[in-house]
C-alpha cells in the first residue's frame, strides 16, 4: 500500500515537478529575498555593537569588536528603564482587561440569546472599520475633559476598546466549535454562570486566548499614536514614545540609537520567534477583519 502510493507520488512529481536547476534558481532567489528583507534589522543589531568611528567608516561590515557597553550606555542615556517599565505595566493591564472582557463577551454572545445581540455584533464589526487615527482628536478632547490625559488609563482603556472586537471574534470562532455538554452538566450541578465562565470557558478557550494575548502584546507594546497624543509626562512615557526622540535628529550618536532600538525590539522579536504560526495567522486574520 505504502509503496504503491509512494510510487504514485514519485510519478506525479515527475509529471508536474520542476527541473532541478529551476528549483535551485528559485530557492536562491527566495533566499536572497529573505536576506534582503531581514537586512535592515540585521544591520540595526550589527551597528548597535560598533564604535561610532566604525559606524561611519564601514557601515556594511560586521563589528570588529562587540561593544556590549553600547547597550548599557543607551539604556542609561535614553532613560529606557522607566519607559520599559511603563510599557510593561500598560501592556499588562490592557492585556488582562482585553482577555477578560473579550472572553466574557464572546461567551455571552455564543451561549445566550438576548435582545440587541445582533446590534452588538454589528457595532463590534463596525468598530473594526473605523481608522484608529481619526479618533485621536475627539479622544484627546474627551480625555482632557474627564482628566485622563497624562495617565496610564488613557492608554489602557483605548487599547482595550480597540482590541476588543478582534478578541471577541477570535474567542467566538473558537467557542462555536466547542460542544456545550460540559457547561450544561455544570448548570445541572448547580453551578452559576460566573462559575461556568471561570471554571470551564476560560480554561477551554485557552488556545484562542493565547492568540489574543500574543496579538494584543504586539499591538500594545508597539503602539505609538495613542501614546504620542495622550502622554506628555516624561515619567509616564512608553518605549516607542521615548525612542521617538532619537528620530528628531538631536542625537548624532547612531550606535546608541541603534542599541536602544535593538533593545526595545527584542521582546517582540522573541515573542514572534516563539509563536510564529500564531502571530502570522492571527495578524492575517485580524487584518482581514480590521
Amino acid at each position: 500500500m505504502t509503496t504503491a502510493t509512494r510510487r504514485h507520488r514519485s510519478v506525479r512529481v515527475k509529471q508536474h515537478g520542476v527541473p532541478r536547476w529551476k528549483q535551485y534558481l528559485r530557492n536562491t532567489v527566495l533566499g536572497v529575498y529573505a536576506l534582503l528583507t531581514l537586512y535592515p534589522l540585521f544591520w540595526m543589531y550589527m551597528s548597535a555593537f560598533k564604535t561610532n568611528a566604525e559606524f561611519y567608516a564601514s557601515p556594511f561590515s560586521l563589528p570588529t569588536s562587540w561593544n556590549w557597553d553600547n547597550f548599557v550606555r543607551a539604556w542609561e542615556v535614553s532613560g529606557m528603564g522607566k519607559a520599559a517599565l511603563n510599557s510593561l505595566w500598560v501592556t499588562f493591564l490592557a492585556l488582562v482587561l482585553t482577555l477578560l472582557l473579550g472572553a466574557l463577551t464572546a461567551y455571552i454572545l455564543s451561549r445566550f440569546t438576548f435582545r440587541g445581540k445582533r446590534l452588538l455584533t454589528g457595532m463590534l464589526l463596525l468598530g473594526m472599520l473605523i481608522p484608529v487615527h481619526s479618533t485621536l482628536v475627539p479622544l484627546f478632547i474627551m480625555m482632557n475633559k474627564i482628566g485622563l490625559l497624562d495617565t496610564h488609563a488613557a492608554l489602557v482603556l483605548p487599547y482595550t476598546a480597540f482590541e476588543l472586537p478582534i478578541a471577541v471574534f477570535i474567542v467566538l470562532a473558537y467557542l462555536t466549535n466547542i460542544p456545550k455538554e460540559m457547561e450544561e452538566a455544570a448548570l445541572v450541578d448547580g453551578s452559576g454562570y460566573t462559575g461556568i465562565f471561570t471554571r470551564i470557558i476560560l480554561p477551554v478557550t485557552l488556545p484562542a486566548l493565547s492568540t489574543v494575548a500574543i496579538l494584543g502584546f504586539l499591538r500594545f507594546w508597539n503602539d505609538f499614536a495613542f501614546a504620542l497624543v495622550f502622554i506628555n509626562d516624561p515619567n509616564l512615557k512608553t518605549l516607542p514614545l521615548s525612542l521617538s526622540v532619537f528620530a528628531t535628529g538631536y542625537s548624532t550618536d547612531f550606535r546608541l540609537t541603534m542599541a536602544a532600538l535593538a533593545m526595545a525590539s527584542l521582546p517582540t522579536i522573541i515573542v514572534y520567534l516563539m509563536f510564529q504560526e500564531q502571530v502570522m495567522k492571527g495578524m492575517a486574520a485580524g487584518a482581514v477583519k480590521g
Binding site: 540595526m44 508597539n222 505609538f224 515573542v271 502570522m280
Partner: peptide, 16 residues
C-alpha cells in the same frame, strides 16, 4: 523572514 517587520514598532522601522 518576510513577516518579521510586522512585529516591529513603526518607530523602530521609521528610524532604521
Amino acid at each position: 523572514s518576510v513577516f518579521m517587520p510586522m512585529v516591529l514598532s513603526s518607530v523602530v522601522i521609521g528610524i532604521i
